[in-house]
Structure formats: structure tokens, C-alpha cells
């Protein structure tokens, strides 16, 4: 199996460079893969060991954050994606990538084309640039292996990150919660910058392979950054790919 990580790009993606830098810092190998090239079958998802959808404003956030990216995944790459997920290859969506996974119906459960969660406009109706604390929950996931109970420091920067779940479905597997200075889940602004209920900042699927989170681990991964906590998530991926 290949150990390369595909960092997916659509027009408007703008966090791909630092995401690649963070994976490399963690000892992995990453490549930029254009959604367009996947759709044109110039390259295949199965050539990669893991896929990351980085942050940005794909397609200008037109029609809704992550909407077009998500619908493209379903309509054009559904088969490849199913094969990829069936082969137990990890997928990570960061910020806009998380929004795309939700729009595609890949999180909270893989049910391509059927959305079961949404990331709504922040309660403040504003873009919020904050440095947040993320409490790692006990939900098992390859991404947070060995991190349960830790508080990770990393930046968060988005306008639509307020998690919404319909009442009538089983609760999601929460991977991260925004935390306050006492390491407790934060319901209050600005420790919880977007107003997510139950301080939800990240969600993982039942297999533990598919993770989506609003904050940016890649921006807390290099020695020059104020925190290198984000690197722990990428190290987990690299370790998993090596096994």
C-alpha cells in the first residue's frame, strides 16, 4: 500500500501548502491532487494511502461553504471514494474540508449524498480568527490515537463552523471539543468561537478513519508556530500509514 497522502485541491482551496508542509514535518509524503484531475481520471484516489481536504474557500463558498466540493465528490468521485473508504484509508477534512465532508454525506457517517450534519454560520455571524484549545475526547480514531484527554492548542479561523445535527438521529462521535482555560468544554464565546452546541469542534465516523475538524492543526506544526500540537495528529497518520 502506498504511503503518500493526497492533499486535494479545488479552485479556492488555500491551505494546501501548509498542510503539505505539516505532513512532511511529521515525516510523511504528501502531494497536491487536483479535484479536476481526479474527475478527469488523470489520477486515482487509490494511488494514495490517505486523503486530506484542506481549508480554504473552495469555489468561492458559492451556494454554501463546501457545497460544490461536496456535491462534486458525490457525483463524480462517489465510486472511487467508496472504494477508498472500503479499503480503510483515512480521510481528514480541515475547516472547508470538514464542510465539504458534511455536504457530501461522508460525516458523521459515510452515506454518500445524504447529509446528516451541517456547519452553519457562526453564532456571531462573523468570521472568527482565534487561537483555541481543543479537548481530545475518548472516541477512538486513528487520528487521535493516544491523545485522549489532552488539550491541543491551535488556530481556528472560519465563518461557518457551528455544528448542526438533526434531532432525530443518533448522536455523532465527537473527536474534539473547544475547551476553556480549565480544560472543560467551552460553551461561551470566544473560547467556543462559533457557538457550536456541546462545544463540538471535530467529528469522527464510526470506523475512526474519517475525521473532520474546524480548527487548523497544520498551522500548529512547525517550530516557528506558537504551538506544535497539531503535528500530533499528522504524526498519528504517518505512523498509521507506516504500519
Amino acid at each position: 500500500m502506498t504511503s503518500r497522502v493526497a492533499v486535494l485541491y479545488a479552485p479556492g482551496t488555500n491551505c494546501h501548502e501548509e498542510t503539505i508542509a505539516a505532513i512532511e514535518r511529521a515525516g510523511g509524503r504528501a502531494e497536491l491532487v487536483l479535484l479536476k484531475e481526479l474527475m478527469a481520471a488523470e489520477t486515482r484516489l487509490m494511488d494514495y494511502g490517505a486523503a486530506i481536504i484542506p481549508g480554504g474557500f473552495s469555489y468561492g463558498d458559492h451556494l454554501g461553504a463546501g457545497r460544490i466540493f461536496g456535491r462534486m465528490l458525490v457525483a463524480r468521485l462517489g465510486e472511487q471514494l467508496s472504494q477508498f473508504l472500503d479499503a480503510h484509508r483515512p480521510v481528514l477534512g480541515i475547516c472547508n474540508g470538514f464542510q465539504a465532508l458534511a455536504e457530501a454525506g461522508i460525516l458523521p457517517q459515510v452515506r454518500l449524498g445524504r447529509q446528516a450534519m451541517a456547519l452553519l454560520a457562526n453564532q456571531s455571524a462573523r468570521f472568527e480568527d482565534r487561537k483555541v484549545r481543543l479537548l481530545v475526547t475518548g472516541e477512538s480514531s486513528i487520528w487521535t490515537e493516544g491523545l485522549a484527554g489532552e488539550v491541543l492548542h491551535m488556530p481556528s479561523a472560519h465563518g461557518e463552523g457551528r455544528v448542526f445535527f438533526p434531532q432525530d438521529q443518533s448522536p455523532p462521535r465527537v473527536a474534539f471539543r473547544f475547551a476553556d482555560a480549565n480544560r472543560k468544554p467551552a460553551s461561551a464565546y470566544p473560547d467556543n468561537p462559533n457557538g457550536s452546541p456541546e462545544a463540538i469542534a471535530g467529528v469522527v465516523d464510526a470506523t475512526g478513519l474519517v475525521l473532520g475538524l474546524m480548527p487548523h492543526p497544520e498551522r500548529a506544526s512547525l517550530p516557528a508556530h506558537y504551538s506544535q500540537d497539531g503535528l500530533k495528529i499528522f504524526r498519528n497518520l504517518v505512523r498509521w500509514l507506516a504500519d
Binding site: 501548502e17 462573523r126 472568527e128 479561523a157 506558537y226
Partner: peptide
């Protein structure tokens, strides 16, 4: 105003607009 602008995108930021305790 400052918190409405992304200060850390590109992963290059060392010292941003707001730092210190509680940033």
C-alpha cells in the same frame, strides 16, 4: 476588527496581530 481577519493561514505566522496571554 482584528479577529475577523485570518492571521495564521499559510502556516507562516510567528507573531500575529494579537498575542500574549489569551492572545
Amino acid at each position: 476588527a482584528g479577529t475577523r481577519f485570518d492571521t495564521t493561514v499559510q502556516g507562516r505566522t510567528v507573531v500575529g496581530l494579537l498575542e500574549g496571554r489569551n492572545h
